[in-house]
Simulated scan of single mutants.
Amino acid sequence: MDIEIPFLIAFVFLALLLRLIRSYITSSRTKPSPALRLPPGPWQLPLIGSLHHLLLSRFSDLPHWALREMSGTYGPLMMLRFGSVPTLVVSSAEAAREVMRTHDLAFCNRHLGVTLETISCGGKDIICSPYNAHWRELRKLCMLEIFSQRRVLSFRPVREAEDIFSAGSETSSTVLVWAMSELVKNPQVMYKAQSEVRETFKGQDKITEDDPVKLRYLQLVIKET
């Protein structure tokens, strides 16, 4: 009985692996649509796609440097595949302007994995919903009922007690992590930022939403990040 269970697990895993490989081979043999013109990109492997190019790069610990190095070979627009997810990598200001301004409607939808699709009830909330009439109605309700000036001011005591919104915390935390990383690498800049904070709020027990405006140098650090 003890031998049968590991054997069964190994058999199920092997069957799933063979099925994935078979589906990949079948999809790769399917002729692409002649109207589909994809950007260039490195060669891919089954299941993992382009991940091995990042892991085997000399900048494997810095993925954004590895992507920049690849963009020197394949251009400012690259098509990679991280696992089963096709990913467009934009590496120049001109290409970013085309994606974010000229053709923003074509790129504004969020990819829904299994987890996000389950949490968002099939992409029906404002974060995961595709750009359509439903999303515009949700945005209108949020602007009128949640993010109006009156509502924002009424929530100010709560923000100061807790100075976070769960829906908007990811971007802020990411910027904070990068800013702290760069400050650690540049001790002189970190010392100057710390001195500004200590001098500006010297003797002050509580910091309000209006106080960070006084930190001119720290704002430059954040913008640079």
Rank of each mutant, 00 (worst) to 15 (best):
P6F: 13
L8H: 04
F11Q: 11
F11E: 07
V12I: 13
F13Y: 03
L14Y: 11
L18H: 02
R19N: 07
R19E: 03
L20C: 14
I21C: 05
I21G: 07
R22I: 06
R22S: 14
R22C: 04
S23C: 10
Y24E: 04
I25K: 15
R29K: 14
R29S: 10
K31F: 08
P32S: 12
L36W: 10
R37H: 11
G41F: 04
P42F: 09
W43M: 00
W43Q: 05
P46K: 09
I48D: 01
I48E: 00
L51K: 02
L51V: 13
H52G: 08
L54F: 03
L56G: 00
R58L: 03
R58E: 12
S60N: 13
S60R: 15
S60G: 02
L62V: 15
L62D: 15
H64Y: 09
R68T: 13
E69S: 07
E69Y: 03
G72T: 15
L77C: 14
M78K: 02
M78F: 03
V85F: 00
T87I: 06
V89G: 03
A93T: 12
E94Y: 00
E94P: 00
E94R: 08
A96N: 11
R97W: 08
E98A: 10
E98G: 09
V99G: 13
V99R: 05
M100S: 02
T102A: 09
T102I: 14
D104T: 09
H111C: 04
H111Q: 08
L112A: 00
G113F: 06
V114L: 13
T115E: 08
I119R: 02
C121R: 11
G122Q: 13
K124Q: 11
I126M: 10
I126Q: 06
I127E: 11
S129Y: 01
H134S: 09
H134K: 10
W135P: 12
R136G: 07
E137V: 03
K140P: 07
K140R: 12
L141Q: 06
L141D: 05
C142V: 13
L144G: 08
L144H: 04
E145W: 02
I146P: 00
S148L: 03
S148I: 06
R150C: 03
S154W: 04
V158G: 05
E160G: 12
E160A: 05
A161K: 12
D163Q: 06
D163W: 11
D163P: 10
I164K: 14
I164M: 14
F165R: 05
A167V: 00
G168T: 02
G168E: 08
G168A: 09
S169L: 05
T171I: 08
T171S: 12
S173I: 10
T174G: 07
L176T: 11
L176C: 14
V177K: 14
E182Q: 15
E182M: 12
L183R: 11
L183M: 15
K185H: 10
M190Y: 11
Y191E: 12
Q194E: 10
Q194Y: 03
S195K: 13
S195N: 12
V197S: 07
V197Y: 12
V197G: 05
E199C: 06
F201Y: 11
Q204N: 01
D205T: 03
K206A: 04
K206M: 14
E209D: 09
K214N: 03
R216Y: 02
L218N: 08
L220H: 04
L220G: 01
I222H: 07
I222R: 02
T225F: 08
T225G: 04
